[in-house]
Nucleic acid binder design. Structure first.
Lengths: 231, 231
DNA sequence: TTTTTAAATTGACATATGTCAATATTTATC
DNA sequence: GATAAATATTGACATATGTCAATTTAAAAA
């Protein structure tokens, strides 16, 4: 059990999750004791909103969307995540419930760690706890921007922000296969799928962004950034 | 210096901030060493977005709004805070910058604690660190709802959510003096001030919410909740 | 008080964006 | 490959909501 903990590294790139950098071998073992891996097909649910939060998970392979189902039947995607990341959920140390649903967009695998193991290590290792606080603060900063975008922006601004987010934060490339349907894009931006289609068409004609199915290519980043800023 | 730390209690109600419940006398002293109090008049800036985050503050008296200035000249209010609360900011342990501006809405006083003192205590006291993680998770949960509201709701739904937020989370009463202008209400909901006025007028006629200046009274909570849910 | 300034309100109007239905295209299933 | 199902696209249309200017009211200053 002292072997390199799979739950902290990506199956593809073997990149270590920076959040876990401060853990000792013993602490990794503590988490490993309860650790198990699960594989998912596209569309399968990893965590369900409202369900009990008994485990923290790390996404080790594939792509997933974190989304919320809200009252009026409207859904919104909070983020798109790739390996290696923690998909714990903010119910941890609060109400032990999931506040969002996590769904695999591609074939994916996740490692589950019991929350009591996770908590134990947090208590033991103050460096790890500070890293966790830093991680959460980064999430909050992202939410700040998200709220700003949604509150006072036109479709073009919101969609531009979303594409820049996918390009920079998720796929780290100007052309990428998003694995997101038009409906998903709508739920990521707070628009309707028809509006997403119209703006994408407009940009295709203007040579700003090209797209075919769920494949996107940002042709004129400068324009897109300007659109995102102006709103 | 072993006297009861003002920075962790409200000057009015003397309520202790639950986040600080686990601190020992020595740890309170550590924070007290660098602690100082500042008084503000309405409209004065406590923290400025973009400025250096050198201190964490606790709001001990008065009311403040946490808001963002964004690119297109549009502002949005993230939250309205009352004593006792931490107004640290998510730049802590990230980039040590402020990501929002904090402005006093009434006469207010805040205690400043140097971030190195704060960090030192977080490192020493794992219970405190876990409380901090719990606190941040609660913030994230609130943002989830906020994002949901902004993304796919009509004016009525958004304004209803805002009034319920003020009533339940901030003022804990069905009638309250908000200290918020119509413009502030607009920035809290992602609407224009004109739209805020129109919806409030509509509700006044229907007997759902009464308001005069910045004083609000929720007359029919049930209706308001339904409006918020339907969107 | 009077004067000045800021904030709130109202109305007319433009338009951005959602809704709905029809069609086309892609993907899945047999 | 043929059929069925899901998804994407297009167009016509309604309306919610922002914009702008004028007016009223309230607050601050003199």
């Amino acid at each position: 059990m002292t072997e390199f903990c799979k739950s902290t590294s990506c199956n593809d790139c073997n990149k270590r999750l920076s959040l876990f950098r401060s853990l000792t071998k013993e602490q990794l073992d503590t988490m490993n004791e309860s650790r198990f891996e699960v594989h998912y097909a596209p569309g399968e649910t990893i965590f369900k909103q409202g369900g009990p939060l008994t485990h923290i998970a790390t996404l080790n392979q594939g792509l997933a969307k974190i989304h919320m189902e809200s009252q009026g039947g409207h859904n919104h995607i909070l983020s798109v995540v790739k390996p290696v990341c923690v998909i714990g959920g903010p119910g941890f140390l609060v109400d032990n419930r999931h506040h969002s649903t996590v769904t695999a967009l591609t074939d994916a695998s996740a490692c589950f760690i019991r929350i009591d193991s996770f908590k134990k290590v947090l208590e033991e290792n103050s460096r790890f706890a500070l890293d966790m606080i830093s991680y959460l603060n980064k999430v909050v900063i992202r939410h700040y921007h998200r709220i700003g975008n949604l509150a006072h922006k036109h479709m073009q601004g919101k969609l531009a922000e979303a594409l820049i987010y996918l390009s920079e934060d998720v796929f780290e490339s100007n052309n990428f296969k998003s694995h997101l349907s038009r409906q998903d894009m709508a739920e990521l931006t707070g628009m309707t799928k028809e509006s997403v289609i119209r703006v994408l068409k407009e940009w295709k004609e203007e040579g700003v962004v090209d797209c075919k199915s769920d494949y996107f290519e940002i042709l004129n980043k400068e324009s897109l950034v300007k659109i995102a800023r102006v709103g």
